[in-house]
Computed example of a mutant assay.
Amino acid sequence: MKPTTITAILATLLTQVVHGSPQPRQDAKPPYFILTGDSTVAVNGGWGDGFLSFVADPASGVNKGDSGATTVSYRNEFWDEVLSEVANTVSDYEPIVTIQFGHNDQKTLTLEEYGDNLEALATDVQGAGGTPIIITSLTRRAFENGEVIQNLADWRAEAINSAKDVGIQYLDLNIASTDYVNAIGEENGHTYDLSDGDSTHLNAAGEVVFGRMVADLMLEARPDFEGYFTPNEALSEKIANGEYATGDE
């Protein structure tokens, strides 16, 4: 075998190790996405339904986000239902449980409590046979001096640390959405507001745009899922390039 060929093979293997990207398997089950989180995930205000709109058969999913939820309230009210969903789908799918909290935890919990709760939720999913993926919080679209106020930065860092401590993947939606909103500017950023003065929740256009953002982040983490998402190259390119998108692309 030529040295250049050996080098190329080693480079490919190194890339796979560094990125931690699972490789496609012939016997792989399609994903079943169980979206958990607060109102920035939930129906009517979150990215969850926008994300699911891109999920293609035979993959499927359900949006179980809950308005006002914290890691504490969600565990108390909905977690048994989520774990049952994992158990009910694991024979036919790879259950992927996305976990995105922070907006409301920020108001009531310490960072340490938040991190411990995320780790417990992720460990529960693993124990039930599912794959947990932590997602850092969608940015608020509040500005100061022309820049997004990064008031979730500490919570982003804690979520990432929790994922690393458990040894699972995470999607850094917080930094991706912050960078995108900074790129398109304050006026355009507010076109995604659910209502006047609400710079946290998303209207229909925002659901699609940020749902696509999460889908693209998911595909970066799990390129083996490529066949399970309907592509929208125009929208994905605008997001990647920091260009304003209407959601009608």
Rank of each mutant, 00 (worst) to 15 (best):
residue 125 V to C: 13
residue 211 G to K: 09
residue 4 T to V: 12
residue 98 T to M: 03
residue 14 L to G: 08
residue 8 A to T: 12
residue 184 I to H: 13
residue 93 Y to K: 09
residue 215 A to Y: 05
residue 101 F to A: 02
residue 216 D to G: 00
residue 45 G to V: 06
residue 222 R to I: 00
residue 10 L to K: 12
residue 133 I to T: 15
residue 182 N to C: 07
residue 139 T to W: 01
residue 153 A to V: 13
residue 36 T to A: 02
residue 30 P to Y: 00
residue 94 E to M: 13
residue 207 E to S: 14
residue 193 D to V: 10
residue 142 A to T: 15
residue 154 D to V: 13
residue 72 V to Y: 04
residue 248 D to G: 10
residue 101 F to S: 01
residue 76 N to Q: 15
residue 68 G to K: 11
residue 172 D to C: 04
residue 206 G to A: 03
residue 69 A to D: 15
residue 225 F to M: 13
residue 193 D to A: 14
residue 222 R to E: 00
residue 22 P to E: 09
residue 20 G to V: 02
residue 216 D to L: 01
residue 150 Q to S: 11
residue 183 A to M: 10
residue 174 N to K: 01
residue 7 T to P: 01
residue 5 T to F: 03
residue 69 A to S: 15
residue 140 R to D: 05
residue 106 Q to V: 06
residue 101 F to P: 00
residue 203 N to Q: 08
residue 9 I to C: 07
residue 9 I to T: 12
residue 94 E to N: 14
residue 203 N to R: 06
residue 70 T to R: 13
residue 149 I to E: 15
residue 196 D to T: 09
residue 201 H to Y: 02
residue 147 E to N: 14
residue 244 Y to E: 12
residue 44 N to G: 09
residue 222 R to A: 00
residue 156 R to F: 01
residue 162 S to T: 06
residue 62 V to M: 12
residue 203 N to M: 12
residue 206 G to D: 00
residue 141 R to Y: 02
residue 106 Q to C: 07
residue 3 P to S: 09
residue 142 A to D: 15
residue 46 G to R: 04
residue 130 G to M: 07
residue 147 E to G: 08
residue 27 D to L: 07
residue 212 R to A: 15
residue 166 V to L: 03
residue 214 V to H: 02
residue 49 D to Y: 01
residue 244 Y to P: 05
residue 240 A to Y: 06
residue 217 L to D: 01
residue 93 Y to T: 11
residue 170 Y to F: 13
residue 174 N to P: 00
residue 183 A to G: 05
residue 14 L to T: 10
residue 81 E to M: 10
residue 181 V to M: 14
residue 4 T to I: 13
residue 183 A to L: 04
residue 61 G to E: 05
residue 86 V to K: 06
residue 213 M to A: 10
residue 226 E to V: 12
residue 104 N to P: 06
residue 145 N to D: 14
residue 100 Q to G: 11
residue 186 E to K: 08
residue 146 G to W: 03
residue 12 T to L: 06
residue 8 A to R: 11
residue 166 V to A: 03
residue 130 G to D: 09
residue 208 V to N: 05
residue 60 S to W: 10
residue 105 D to K: 01
residue 188 N to P: 01
residue 18 V to A: 09
residue 15 T to R: 09
residue 86 V to P: 07
residue 98 T to G: 04
residue 141 R to W: 01
residue 164 K to G: 05
residue 185 G to Q: 05
residue 238 K to W: 02
residue 177 S to I: 04
residue 171 L to C: 15
residue 44 N to S: 12
residue 118 L to F: 08
residue 37 G to Y: 02
residue 180 Y to I: 04
residue 229 F to C: 09
residue 105 D to L: 04
residue 19 H to M: 10
residue 109 L to T: 06
residue 171 L to S: 14
residue 213 M to N: 11
residue 189 G to H: 00
residue 15 T to Q: 11
residue 112 E to S: 14
residue 205 A to R: 08
residue 92 D to G: 13
residue 28 A to G: 01
residue 73 S to P: 02
residue 130 G to K: 08
residue 235 L to D: 00
